[in-house]
Design a binder for these strands. Structure first.
Length: 808
RNA sequence: GCCCGGGUGGCGGAACUGGCAGACGCGCAGGACUCAAAAUCCUGUGCCGGCAACGGCAUGCGGGUUCGAUUCCCGCCCCGGGCACCA
């Protein structure tokens, strides 16, 4: 036999990447696929640093799944693109002093190279970038559809303003009230007119549909909590001057314990209700709160502050007059901006009442606790006719009782807010609106889309709080498309999350310039078959995409309302026990590893270091194991190809242990790959390789299935061996091997013999052996007899093919 | 504070539905090959005691259920993530 050529991943991988491109291997037939499978992964933001290990981990896991599905006979569409607009790119451009319009194409080119090098099964015909006018034309179109449907509305809202950056910050960029880039600069609130999408109108549906989706439960839970549904009631507290203070509560059962009311400082009734003597104090307090930035009011110091208004309202249950306060622990944007305080059973109310010496009245009794805080178990006390009721039935009865007098209404409240899509920034798609003094905000006519982002050399945001686009005069001043009078363009750009809320709809239709997504293509390919991504997008991206899809369904543009029926979340790669970050200096750059070990080894190492859905710890040494494994597979494959019987196309029967192990391996790898349990699938392949080597087996019928099982994981190596074994076409046009349970079953099994639950012997018995036979042999065993010690056997537990336990 | 995960050898991690804890890999030790080293191959490797056969102890901690618990129940501790004056 001639010597086996050395395994040189660089050569092998370059060869197959070139062939895949030449032969259009990864470009599926999109118009009439027999079994379409849309394999989606979350597209990256093309940073200047290049693709990082986290991206690579996610993409490898998703790519393995796509390749596996293709081997099962599906027509797999696996597209990729770039989420290239947004504040990250813009800030980076500001730091390095290069215009993002120049920076982004460079980054995309670098990313493309890396994505090709790692061996993803991407259909490059359908790549996209959100910064491409041919793409964002339709992002703007989407805005127009929402605007026309009344789902895009303009509201005044507070934003975080950094006086040094001279710009609006996202909430994530504010750290405990300070700018993330200027740790000694306090963020200030500013009030601006902004565009909001009415996602709250869809809250109930977004929540209810979660039950119908096949999603990783962690992701669904995050989203459910974010939507935050609370059921309760609105209760009315009347004041002597006839004002009605409406509060929202989830615990109407505790109304007898409401000893005071609190209004948010911004509540419209605060100033009206405050008595003459208290006006000064109340106004001072409101000014103080207004000066606080949005973030520190929420997450900063939680010491309770507040001011008494001097006024009183009537508790609808007890009829007594209770004092009205204003305090910033009550938020205007949740519920009605007013609460009834039940200090006996709510921690915050209790702190406040203690600080300001307000009365505390217990109305719920719970075994073993003196003052049960927000407890739903327990019974009512000091609650008049409702004493003795459980909290649940008390709540129902009290709401009923009060609603007869018009003082209570059942009510559902959501935590989720409308989606603010305005960004007072440069690097994004301009919001396609024209402001006309006569007509108000008018949508740019669809024929005039896209509203191209003009090139502005100095795109730095300034102190005005107005987007840099306002400085481009020729662009800014336009005629109203409705009445033709002088008008101005909207100068804000839209949120990056709008770009990414519909990209999966665009992929199959990228070649159509005259429509966002082609009806036939969309019918064929959507919804997405499987979406794989990280939980960092569990809420915003996934929620917005679901919302946008629902709206498109309601407007008749698509026929489904959930874009991702099946979603799997992958874990996080950490290094030395900590998240990778530039500041920690533990970022792993994949390129060097791929250069040294090859893409196949790197892919497999990433998948082998831990469970895909949980992530794992990246260690440099670990990769040697998979590389050794690939070397062994290489040698096995090459030797098999050179074996005369194999090269003549002969199929021979395998030794029985090898045959059994083969069928066990096919079963295990199939099931584990299907369940994204790649680490154990790889372990199973390693065991099989050990078996082949121990048995000195190079038979085609033993080696060929291994090449197929390995193909999704190490696609280049598999192609090379497949070709060496005499196949003309791509291994990915072959079929995934099938297993036979009967052949996977061992002829003999080992049964454990226990005495009082401790293992005392092992017996090899025929599969399916009867209890009587096993017992007889076990009792005859010398080691077992020693522990039975002549004692009578009180009980025998027998688990077929597994164990027999004697209780003495 | 609330809601999710998780805690298993020196390390990354396995373990079906309550049935042999530690698969697979790394590392380490010994051996083969080599002038030598690397690579490769073989053997061993949870901890304690013992030359050994073997025995004891072990899945964060404390209880419980069970013939039998990493797995189920109760009460804690620690780590990671999310939400956070949400009434």
């Amino acid at each position: 036999m001639p010597p086996v050529p050395a395994y040189d991943p660089q050569t092998v991988e370059a060869r197959w990447q070139a062939r895949w491109a030449e032969r259009h291997t990864n470009e599926p037939e999109l118009d009439h696929p027999a079994r379409p499978f849309y394999n989606l992964m979350m597209f990256p933001y093309p940073s200047a640093e290049g693709l990082h290990v986290g991206n690579m981990f996610a993409f490898t896991g998703a790519d393995i799944y796509g390749r596996y599905k293709r081997l099962q006979g599906f027509t797999v569409f696996e597209p990729i693109g770039f989420d290239a607009f947004g504040i990250h790119s813009e800030n980076y451009a500001l730091t390095v002093g290069t215009h993002p319009a120049k920076l982004i194409p460079k980054n995309i080119a670098a990313f493309t190279k890396q994505l090709k090098r790692f061996g993803g099964m991407f259909d490059w015909r359908h790549q996209l970038s959100t910064t491409d006018p041919a793409y964002y034309k339709w992002t703007q179109w989407l805005f127009v559809q929402l605007f026309k449907a009344g789902l895009a509305v303009r509201k005044r809202a507070a934003v975080n303003w950094c006086p040094v950056c001279k710009t609006v910050l996202a909430n994530e960029q504010v750290i405990n009230g300070y700018c993330e880039r200027h740790p000694d600069v306090k963020v200030e609130p500013r009030f601006l007119e902004q565009w909001f999408f009415a996602i709250t109108k869809y809250a109930e549906r977004l929540l209810a549909n979660l039950e119908t989706l096949d999603w990783s439960s962690s992701t669904a839970t995050l989203q459910r909590n974010w939507i935050g549904k609370s059921e309760g009631a609105e209760l009315v507290f009347e004041t002597p001057d006839g004002s009605k203070i409406v509060v929202f509560t989830t615990r109407p059962d505790t109304v007898f314990g409401a000893t005071y009311l609190v209004l948010a400082p911004e509540h419209p009734l605060v100033e009206r209700l405050a008595t003459h003597e208290q006006q000064t104090a109340v106004k001072a307090y409101r000014r103080e709160i207004e000066g606080k930035d949005l973030v520190s009011r929420r997450v900063g110091d939680k010491t309770k502050t507040g001011v008494f208004l001097g006024a009183y309202a009537r508790n609808p249950a007890t009829g007594e007059a209770i004092p009205i306060w204003t305090a910033d622990y009550v938020l205007m944007e949740y519920g009605t901006g007013a609460i009834m305080a039940v200090p006996a059973h709510d921690k915050r109310d209790h702190e406040f009442a203690t600080a300001f010496r307000l009365p505390i009245r217990q109305v719920v009794r719970l075994e073993g606790e003196s003052l049960p805080l927000v407890s739903e178990e327990g019974t009512l006390v000091n609650s008049g006719p409702f004493d003795g009721s459980t909290c649940a039935e008390g709540a129902r009865k009290i709401v009923e009782w009060l609603s007869d007098r018009g003082l209570a209404t059942p009510r559902v409240q959501f935590r989720i807010h409308d989606w603010c899509i305005s960004r007072q920034r440069y690097w994004g798609p301009p919001i396609p609106i024209i402001h006309c003094d006569a007509c108000g905000p008018v949508a740019v006519p669809e024929k005039d889309l896209p509203v191209e982002l003009p090139f502005i050399e100095d795109f730095r945001p300034d102190d005005t709080g107005v987007s840099p686009l306002a400085r481009h005069r020729e662009w800014y001043f336009v005629k109203c498309p409705q009445c033709g009078k002088d008008a101005r363009r909207e100068t804000d750009v839209s949120d990056t999350f709008l770009d990414s809320s519909w990209y999966f709809l665009r992929y199959p239709s990228t070649e159509f310039g005259d429509r966002p997504f082609d009806a036939a293509r969309t019918r064929t390919w959507l919804p997405v078959t499987t979406y794989i991504g990280g939980n960092e997008h569990a809420v915003l991206h996934l929620l917005y995409s679901r919302f946008v899809t629902m709206v498109l369904k309601d407007l008749g543009h698509v026929t489904f309302e959930e874009p991702f029926p099946k979603l799997r979340a992958h874990g996080l790669i950490i290094k030395d026990g900590a998240k990778m970050s530039k500041s920690r200096g533990n970022v792993v750059v994949p390129d060097a590893y791929i250069q040294e070990w090859g893409a196949d080894a790197f892919r497999m190492y990433l998948m082998f270091l831990g469970p895909f859905q949980e992530g794992g710890d990246f260690r440099d040494e670990g990769i040697t194991g998979v590389r050794r494994f690939l070397e062994r597979v290489w040698t096995l494959g090459q030797e098999a190809a050179l074996t005369p019987g194999v090269s003549a196309g002969k199929r021979e029967d395998l030794p029985s242990e090898v045959d059994r192990k083969l069928h066990q391996t096919i079963r295990k790898v199939t099931q584990d790959t299907e369940g994204l349990q790649y680490n154990t699938a790889i372990a199973a392949m390693m065991e099989y390789v050990n078996e082949l080597r121990n048995a000195d087996c190079r038979a085609r019928s033993g080696v060929e299935p291994l090449v197929l099982l390995l193909a999704p994981y190490a696609p280049h190596l598999a192609e090379e061996l497949w070709a060496a074994l005499g196949h003309e076409t791509s291994v990915f046009d072959a079929r995934w091997p099938a297993w036979d349970d009967a052949r996977a079953a061992a002829g003999e099994v080992e049964v454990v013999v226990q005495v009082n639950g401790k293992v005392r012997a092992r017996l090899a018995v025929p599969r399916g052996a009867a209890e009587a036979d096993v017992r007889k042999r076990a009792e005859g065993d010398e080691g077992v007899r020693k522990f039975l010690d002549g004692n009578p056997i009180r009980k025998v537990i027998f688990v077929p093919d597994r164990l027999i336990n004697f209780v003495v």
